[in-house]
Nucleic acid binder design. Structure first.
Length: 928
RNA sequence: GGGGGCAUAGCUCAGUUGGUUAGAGCGCAUGGAUCACAACCAUGAGGUCACAGGUUCGAAUCCUGUUGUCCCCACCA
């Protein structure tokens, strides 16, 4: 696909992002081909729910992963980023049911299970497709040939196999236990799916009269409607108040049901009245007490949150309506002793927000203790690490406290539990394939369990089910364990923890070595983006307006590990402007390169990257010491720029290794904008326009080389623009070529060809670099002086530079730069000030003193102020450093390197102070 | 009830093992249509690093406490 030879004047991401993505995908470069000679790098994508569309949180999550994947791929690793989507059992089921109700006016039960599932699969087709399209717009370099869905055939096999294995080990069991029930969703939930919220509530204190006519006992409760299922009153055995009552019986008020007063360690004498009503079927603590004492466990609330027959006349009434009526009735009858307003933590369904009702129910559970142990160990032994580290504490704490995991759900959309009930003998057969007959009695009439599994049961297998487990695939052997899991802190408990223990159990190894945890994307005011607030921002709209690269750069720049970020349009504009800057710098380079139809562009596209190693293993050319015999011919600014690039590349690599992606992005930004655009391009223009063709070619060679390195370093963050520009540059290390040909599917594309710049910058000082730094300093101070004196930028000035012989020599070599960038007509060099006219403006830098006869523009007042300010600062420094050096503690204990640096600094400051003092005296005289 | 994060320029945030003058972007001020870019360039102003102690030759950085703020966990007597 050949494109126009020229870059458009303005950066317009819409002109190329889609085209480039299509070409990338077509090239097959996202597909990780197993290569034993390469080190693998694998990330499995946290699969977005198919409930809707991608939001900003996904965009952040996926950009982080894409940056890491592209970077590692450029480093020559066999990089796999495995994409997919999640069936999200309960969430999707609710959405689909809602839709059916809205469009057809039918409930899911009216539709029936089979028909409902058909609709759900259709939903998956539509929304799953939308989501993967969005991922492409973001620029995700994921391996689409390995795309998976948590409910596809392979995942289903993995789920069945895993279930059976745990069952056979006794780690999955079926039991009649107290579970969290959501009456609105009509299903059980795991502990993790219950959210706790503090709500205002009431403690009602009721008297339970003695069965023998005695006073009885007063207990507090926030849920009077559960009284119908009370089976005992418990008091602490050491509670002197109630010692005599233990063993006696009381009546549930207004009923004739007698319940015993028992002694148990559970009641806290400090809380309430110290006596607790025990309702095993509706409270987890009470359930335990009930088990300890062998109590009955009747239920008075059913799965619809309505009262059962146990509540007698309230039967069928909603639990909260019953509460109200019952309290009124008890109060009327004189059993209500007092009430107390209190803040009570209430459990709510994380999906629908309904108040959770603890119910006694037949469900499937995973026994957690044995599974949690190795997961705890893996973190403690460092086989699993968290970035940032503090999340390890959270992870460990949860695992230490975890209770058995209720995995069955009374839903339709999900993995059906691989268990079959035999009505003949009442037995249960658990098998990965449908059994023909009951293994216990041989009956052939088997009924598969109606329930499906918690959605997280299948997500827990994601890192290995996607690689082919339970088959022994090559992928599994090569990529497992994966390198890093990138995810938000909000699903550590739901997901990360469960992947870890599942991986350890099944694969005998952690599913990933690192967990990189990020936070939430908030709106500009710092609020959580939510549907109810309507403050969500659609990533697609942002891409439409600013381009995917700007979005990605914004997300990466704003995020530090584990922290939330605010999403602001100013940041987007900044990122977009940065892209435009790079675009125009590239345009500048390209327009100076020999044209595409030119006969000889050899010197422009000559050497390989300054610092790279290509994937085919070619050796790198260290920056600062370029290949060929042109070393001596490179100008100071070339050497300076190459060195800066190599230094930046080394730092950026280190930042990437430490997951400091925002710092890395910041450094590329600086390298590109400050060093390359603001200084290097300006410095190099003299040679480009100077008429010396050899100089021009050399300058272009370095311009191109550094631009390539910038494109490479930036590519993980802004893949589209870097690829687009890359395509216009002459092929790297290839035959002599010209600007203006491009084809991103070719093997020369950045994605396929470019290697991450790796070579360390040279050690030690470099005279050329130092000369440029001195020149920059002088240029800056002259510009400052000029601005202060309000001298027209176009007006050329004459300057006298006074400095040490060494610095004079250095600055003399940069004369062209000084003249051009500071707007000077002529420069005179002097080693002392004698003989200088006094009618002059001046500036003082570390390297030199500059005097500029500005004629009528001299503003001694401004200069006086500036010099004074400068002087005050230097004097401060002198005082502080002198004090430091006079302190024997410092000179004795600080490292010699630090002490020497301070000595040198002091000398420099003192010299500066002397220069300033002299000049101030002159200016003062002028003013008076 | 338990645990954790954060507090740095007007705003949003960096500041990697303690060591030059604490940085960036935006915003602000001044000047500028210069032939890569006004989505730009140049120059500048702006911070007692929440507060109080402590460790250290040296603290934005480590420790303790205080205040403010956000979050997570927790079986609703």
């Amino acid at each position: 696909m050949k494109q126009d030879a020229k870059l458009a004047k303005n950066y317009d991401p819409k002109a190329f992002e889609e085209r480039i993505y299509a070409a990338w995908e077509k090239s097959g470069a996202f597909h990780a081909v197993i290569d034993r000679a390469k080190k693998p790098f694998a990330i499995v994508m946290p699969p977005p729910n198919i409930t809707g569309q991608l939001h900003m949180g996904h965009a952040l999550d996926q950009t982080l992963q894409d940056v890491l994947t592209r970077w590692r791929r450029m480093q020559g690793r066999c990089a796999l980023w495995l994409p997919g989507t999640d069936h999200a059992s309960i969430a999707t089921e609710m959405k689909v049911a809602e839709e059916i109700l809205a469009t057809e006016g039918k409930s899911k039960h009216e539709l029936g299970r089979a028909e409902f599932l058909k609709r759900a699969w259709e939903w998956k087709r539509v929304y799953g497709g939308k989501i993967t399209e969005q991922m492409r717009k973001l620029g995700n370099s994921c391996d689409w040939e390995r795309e998976r869905f948590t409910m596809d055939e392979g995942c289903n096999r993995a789920v069945r196999e895993y279930f059976v294995r745990l069952y056979e080990k006794g780690l999955i069991y079926r039991g009649n236990r107290l579970i969290n029930w959501c009456p609105r969703c009509g299903t059980s939930l795991s502990d993790a799916e219950v959210e706790h919220e503090d709500r205002k509530g009431t403690y009602w204190y009721f008297r339970y009269p003695g069965a023998d006519g005695g006073e009885g006992i007063v207990v507090a409760t926030s849920r009077p409607e559960t009284m119908f299922a009370d089976v005992a009153i418990a008091v602490h055995p050491d509670d002197a108040r109630y010692g005599a009552l233990v063993g006696t019986q009381v009546l549930i008020p207004l009923t004739d049901r007698r319940i015993p007063i028992i002694a148990d360690a559970y009641p806290d004498p400090e809380k309430g009245t110290g006596a607790v009503k025990i309702t095993p079927a509706h409270d987890p603590n009470d359930f335990e007490v009930g088990e300890r004492h062998g109590l009955d466990m009747p239920s008075c609330i059913d799965e619809n949150a309505a009262m059962t027959g146990l509540a007698e006349k309230y039967m069928g009434m909603d639990r909260f309506a019953c509460r109200k009526a019952w309290v009124a009735e008890l109060a009327e009858a004189g059993f209500l002793v007092k009430t107390e307003e209190k803040v009570i933590p209430i459990g709510e369904c994380y999906r629908c927000g309904a108040v959770i009702e603890p119910l006694l129910s037949d469900q499937w559970f995973v026994r957690m203790e044995e599974l949690a142990r190795p997961a705890i160990l893996a973190a403690k032994e460092g086989r699993l690490t968290h970035v940032p580290e503090r999340f390890e504490k959270i992870y460990l704490h949860w695992l230490a406290e975890v209770r058995d995991w209720c995995i069955s759900r009374q839903l339709w959309w999900g993995h059906r539990i691989p268990a079959w009930h035999c009505d003949a003998c009442g037995g249960i057969a658990v098998a990965s394939e449908t059994p023909r007959a009951c293994p216990d009695c041989g009956a052939t009439e088997l009924r598969q369990d109606e329930d499906v599994l918690d959605t997280w049961f299948s997500s827990a297998l994601w890192p290995f089910s996607t690689l082919g487990w339970p088959e022994n695939t090559e992928e599994l052997a090569y990529f497992y364990p994966t390198d890093v899991l990138v995810t938000g802190y909000d699903i550590i408990f739901f997901w990360v923890v469960r992947m870890v223990f599942s991986g350890l159990e099944i694969m005998g190894d952690v599913p990933f070595e690192r967990v990189y945890v990020h936070g939430l994307v908030r709106d500009a005011e710092g609020r959580k983006m939510s549907k109810s607030l309507g403050n969500g921002i659609d990533p697609l709209e942002i891409i439409e307006r600013y381009g995917a690269d700007a979005l990605r750069f914004t997300l990466i720049s704003g995020v530090s590990a584990g922290g939330d970020m605010r999403f602001q349009t100013e940041k987007l504009e900044g990122a977009r402007n940065f892209a435009n800057k790079l675009w125009n710098a590239s345009r500048f380079v390209l327009m100076n390169l020999p044209a595409a139809d030119g006969e000889d562009g050899a010197t422009a596209g000559d050497s390989a990257s300054a610092t790279g190693t290509r994937p085919d293993g070619d050796s790198a050319t260290p920056a600062g010491t370029p290949a060929g015999g042109e070393d001596g011919a490179l100008a100071d600014e070339d050497l300076w720029m190459l060195r800066r690039t190599a230094e930046a590349a080394a730092e950026i690599t280190r930042n990437m290794e430490n997951f400091e992606l925002s710092v890395a992005a910041q450094k590329i930004y600086e390298l590109t904008w400050s060093d390359y655009c603001d200084w290097y391009i300006e410095l190099v223009k003299e040679r480009l326009y100077g008429g010396d063709e050899a100089e021009k070619a050399r300058a272009l060679s370095v311009l191109t080389r550094v631009l390539r390195d910038i494109l490479k370093l930036l590519h993980p963050f802004m893949p589209f623009i870097t690829e687009e520009i890359w395509g216009f540059l002459p092929p790297e290390g290839g035959a002599p070529a010209q600007a203006g040909t491009r084809d991103e599917t070719s093997p020369e594309s950045l994605l396929i060809r470019a290697a991450w710049p790796e070579t360390a910058p040279p050690d030690g000082p470099d005279p050329a670099t130092e000369r440029i730094e001195k020149a920059k300093e002088v240029i800056r101070s002259i510009r400052n002086l000029r601005a202060e004196a309000a001298a027209a930028p176009s007006k050329l000035l004459n300057a006298v530079i006074v400095a040490s012989p060494e610095n004079l020599e250095a600055l003399r070599r940069e004369e062209g730069h000084l003249k051009k960038l500071a707007g000077l007509a002529a420069i005179e060099y002097a080693s002392d000030k004698s003989g200088l006219p006094e009618e002059t403006a001046s500036a003082v830098t570390g390297a030199a003193e500059i005097f500029i006869p500005l004629d009528e523009l001299i503003d001694y007042k401004a200069e006086f102020e500036r010099l004074h300010k400068e002087n005050a600062r230097v004097a401060d420094d002198v005082a502080r450093i002198s004090a430091k050096l006079a302190n024997p503690g410092f000179t004795g204990k600080a490292p010699a390197k630090v002490v020497n640096a301070e000595r040198e600094r002091l000398a420099a400051c003192e010299e500066m102070a002397a220069k300033l003092a002299a000049r101030i005296a002159v200016v003062e005289k002028k003013l008076s």
